[in-house]
Amino acid sequence: MAKTAVARQGKRGGANELSPEQLKKFLRDMLLIRRFEEKAGQLYGMGLIYGFCHLYIGQEAVVVGMQAAAEPGKDSVVTSYRDHGHMLATGMDPKGVMAELTGRRTGYSRGKGGSMHMFSTERKFYGGHGIVAAQVPIGTGLAFAHKYSNDGGASMVYYGDGAANQGQVYESFNMAALWKLPAVYVIENNRYGMGTSVARASATGDLHKRGAAYGIPNEAVDGMDVLAVYEAGQRALAHARSGKGPYILGVETYRYRGHSMSDPAKYRSREEVSKIRSEQDPIDRIRQMLLNDGDATEEEVKKIDADVKAIVTEAAEFAQQSPEPDLSELYTDVLVEA
């Protein structure tokens, strides 16, 4: 496999040489998402989380690489309902996220949003949207606001291969290109829109190339390689910030779990999943690289794992111990009371 070569090349991190500390942070951030999602799956199985719950396992390198390229507190982020990873990557508190999953008053939406609807204005995370592709015009509006306010920020708009066939994506491309809005569209192509493969849903498979119709620069990215994502994210953000308009990244990734918790996943073989897990797993790749290059010891790596587990365990306990919302909360937050 060429993964080591890719990783070594990517280790330069684009404009900036990546330090071992930065590489370890990638490992830590991806592990946090993975362990968090595994715990969420567990709590779902116990009936503590209900409704829809879409896990991000397998796709961790995408949001971790992208957000490492972003400026926290300056760039906005918006995504679909598969959003737990994005919230953690923007620095939202795992306790608040998990407590929202369990529908508790300490959750980010005080138990009224659930898995698909969480926000943090502090972290500039604007959801968490349950309607496929609705986040794309919204994210374009965030970019509009960045330009209008001239605050130097960019909007990072994540959507999946399923959403890529919604018309509103292309309405957004048109306006973003027309008005040169600082938007980075990140297509998380995990190969399946629910149970339908890209080949069965999309006339053309290179979803990022659809931006060419609007004159938007675009490129394909290996979404199982966090360094490749990080580099591409830097390029895309630099372009958006320069006033040249939007940029599209077609990130090839894979989700190991079903579309949601209730997905029997009959549309793909077990072998397909296990092959990708064993050969391309983004967490294994960065861990191996750190160890092979002598940038981290076995002990350090184990400690990262243990620290992350402790955070997730604490979040799960918090999410189970927190009380449910007060019944009076049913009627609050419908409108802003002027």
């Binding site: 015009p137 509006g141 209008y148 309405e171 306006m175």
Partner: peptide, 26 residues
């Protein structure tokens, strides 16, 4: 033209764009 903006004929898109801009504080 910054504050009075002609849009393309794209209601779904510009309504969503407006919502995003409002969420961001405009």
């Amino acid at each position: 033209a910054k504050r009075v903006v002609d849009t393309p004929i794209t209601e779904h898109g510009f309504a969503g764009l407006g919502v995003g801009a409002a969420m961001a504080g405009l």
